[in-house]
């Protein structure tokens, strides 16, 4: 196991109380695993991915543990986390287009970043050139300013920067959402290639685009309202989902070759519960067609089949 997360709780402190954005997920990430992390807005997927690398100012660590390659990750301690960041846990941010300082040449920025982390730029330069070429970029992007690059070039540059120190865990946060469809595909394939070449050991790909993540992920984990709903291999999730939420989520996706004149796309009626005072029991209860009395109790996240975890009383 590269990553083990156990009962992690991260809340947002607000004036009206704690927003329980991440309420106790427990899961593991195997060596070499690419895990798609799916869910709608407010499901906690971004909170989870941020928690693993850097809590922002409003987030409070409440409890639980994170272990990377057998070492405890002190996510509550911003200072101690610096040792892990970049070298062992890295991030391709959602905002890759604007992730680079606009007034520094890219090469200079990389050099300053590496030197500040105690890595000799001179020793890394050849590898940097090789990787830039691998993603189809000329070496001379290093002599340019970010605004001289196209969106796709910036995205690829950031991908190379983020993975330069061969982290164990890479978090790719909505990396494709700002790109057009053909570039999305290329970026997704690059992620797989980085894993295959062992630039990164394991990867969490946060997305709301299940169809894209299906193409590259080994496993998919679905979150709902701050909790885990289901985790299984990508194929199982798409073909034989067990959680009613996963089923409805998949039903709301358009399929190629189907005309939606007669059959409207269903969507999921209702909206996710507020997490300031989340309801008792299963949080999907109010929108779930199968819900009954049993669902007033919180369903555990259990392995119903080999490598297939579900948090639902009705999953059979």
């Amino acid at each position: 196991m590269t990553l083990e997360v156990s009962d992690l709780q991260v809340y947002y402190r607000t004036l009206r109380g704690d927003v329980r954005a991440l309420d106790g997920p427990t899961f593991g990430l195997a060596d070499g695993e690419i895990m798609g992390l799916a869910g709608e807005s407010g499901s906690g997927k971004s909170t989870l991915s941020k928690s693993l690398i850097r809590l922002d100012g409003r987030m409070r660590y409440i409890g639980g543990s994170v272990t990377l390659d057998g070492d405890e990750v002190p996510i509550w301690d911003d200072q101690a986390m610096n040792e892990f960041r970049y070298k062992r846990i890295s991030l391709i941010p959602q905002y890759a287009m604007s992730a680079m300082n606009p007034t520094r040449k890219i090469g200079k920025m990389i050099a300053e970043l590496l030197e500040s982390r105690g890595v000799r730029f001179r020793d890394t330069r050849d590898e940097l050139h090789r990787r830039l070429e691998l993603v189809g970029l000329q070496r001379d992007v290093l002599d340019r300013y970010p605004l001289e690059l196209s969106g796709g070039m910036k995205q690829r540059t950031v991908m190379v920067i983020s993975t330069l120190l061969n982290p164990s865990l890479l978090i790719a946060d909505e990396v494709t959402s700002a790109l057009d469809v053909s570039t999305q595909r290329a970026v997704a394939e690059t992620l797989v290639e980085f894993r295959d070449r062992r630039f990164v050991k394991s990867m969490i790909v946060v997305t709301h685009d299940i169809s894209l993540v299906y193409q590259i992920a080994d496993t998919i984990m679905v979150m709902y309202a701050g909790r885990l709903a289901e985790k299984a291999s990508a194929k199982t999730i798409i073909e034989m989902p067990k959680h009613p939420y996963t089923k409805m989520l998949l039903d709301s996706l358009p399929e190629v070759g189907v005309k939606y004149e007669d059959k409207r796309l269903s969507g999921i009626p209702g909206s996710p519960p507020g997490l300031l005072k989340p309801p008792q029991g299963c949080r999907f209860r109010d929108r779930c067609p199968l819900a009954d009395k049993q669902c007033l109790e919180q369903p555990p996240f259990v392995e119903v089949e080999r490598d297939h975890h579900v948090a639902c009383w009705k999953a059979e």
Partner: peptide, 28 residues
């Protein structure tokens, strides 16, 4: 609060570097 600052901090860049960049850009 800008995105390049966030990115640098996520990659564990020390406060000094982040502030230096911010100061330079804030001067403009």
């Amino acid at each position: 609060e800008s995105e390049y600052s966030n990115y640098l901090q996520a990659l564990g860049a020390p406060r000094r570097l982040v502030r230096r960049y911010a100061f330079r850009n804030a001067m403009l």
